[in-house]
């Protein structure tokens, strides 16, 4: 039951869910949730290939870096969201349409 195909399937489903969330939502934080799902899907793929394909741990290292990057991305992204909310009193993505204030 635990094989490469099932892991790729799960990761594929996670990826599609992430894409759906990213595009269907208009709330910036919800879009960040979708991005987290997509990053998780890719990290899962790397770990699965490590187990079922070559057994050196480079895939785990890549997954670790993905997790680290996702954490940094969430911190900066949410900082930007909160700053945007202070300026506009809204976190609707369509309000973020101008380049200056």
């Amino acid at each position: 039951m635990i094989n490469l195909g099932s892991y790729l399937g799960i990761s594929f489903a996670l990826f599609i869910c992430g894409i759906l969330v990213m595009i269907a939502r208009k709330n910036i934080i919800a879009i960040l949730l979708g991005i987290e799902l997509i990053l998780n899907a890719s990290a899962l793929n790397f770990a699965a290939y490590t187990k079922f394909s070559n057994n050196n741990l480079d895939g785990h290292i890549l997954s670790l870096f993905i997790i680290v990057t996702a954490a940094a991305e969430a911190a900066v992204g949410l900082g930007i969201v909160i700053r945007f909310f202070q300026l506009r009193e809204s976190i609707h993505i369509d309000d973020a349409a101008s380049l200056q204030n």
């Binding site: 894409i19 208009k26 709330n27 369509d94």
Partner: peptide, 22 residues
């Protein structure tokens, strides 16, 4: 504005994109 958590239209376009991506 479009509702913050999406409406039918956004879900429709998201669905099309998801099908293409898949």
């Amino acid at each position: 504005k479009i509702a913050a958590m999406g409406n039918k239209k956004t879900y429709f376009f998201a669905g099309i994109t998801a099908i293409l991506a898949s």
